[in-house]
Amino acid sequence: MNIFRLTGDLSHLLAIIILLVKIWKTRSCAGISGKSQLLFALVYTTRYLDLVSTYISAYNTFMKLIFICASYATVYLIYMKFKATYDHNHDTFRVEFLILPSFVLSLLINHDFAVLEILWTFSIYLESVAILPQLFLVSKTGEAESITSHYLFALGSYRGLYLLNWIYRYYAESHYDLIAIVAGVVQTVLYCDFFYLYVTKVLKGKKLQLPA
């Protein structure tokens, strides 16, 4: 565990908590893509199946359980409890265009052709693009609430911090995982446009509004 990975994990945790609290407090999931949240639930489920086979640490197990539970809770709030506030007219990204290629790619490029390993690989590929329905929704409505922007910033920072963690681990432990690294770069790059808007607008107290 190094500082980049710890802050990355905490940033990830913060993002999930921000989203849950936002939906709960406002009793609304307006502006949030249910499809991205469904994809994240699928990501955590397929990645953390090793909870039953491999013990890493109490920290690792605890965080995995939190991520799985929080993602299902978020999906529940969006599709069940606060369904009336869900922006389904704008949440129209075709998720099969993300799920199917991720799955095919995980069959082709993986560390080991075994069920758990392929599901892990699938989760890495899918996570890298799972935010696209959310970014698509923001681009369709042309704006995002500040709290949604904070959520996106925390979530985007997490993989960016993991990139630093992987650079550190490469030099300190000679450890690297090319599948995670390439997917992590893709994932972080997808947020770049948003990061720019966040720094130039949201941090200056303005609403994140896209040019018409």
Binding site: K64, L178, I179
Partner: peptide, 10 residues
Amino acid sequence: SSDGNPHDEL
């Protein structure tokens, strides 16, 4: 290296 390691990250 990238072989044989359990995935120890989140």
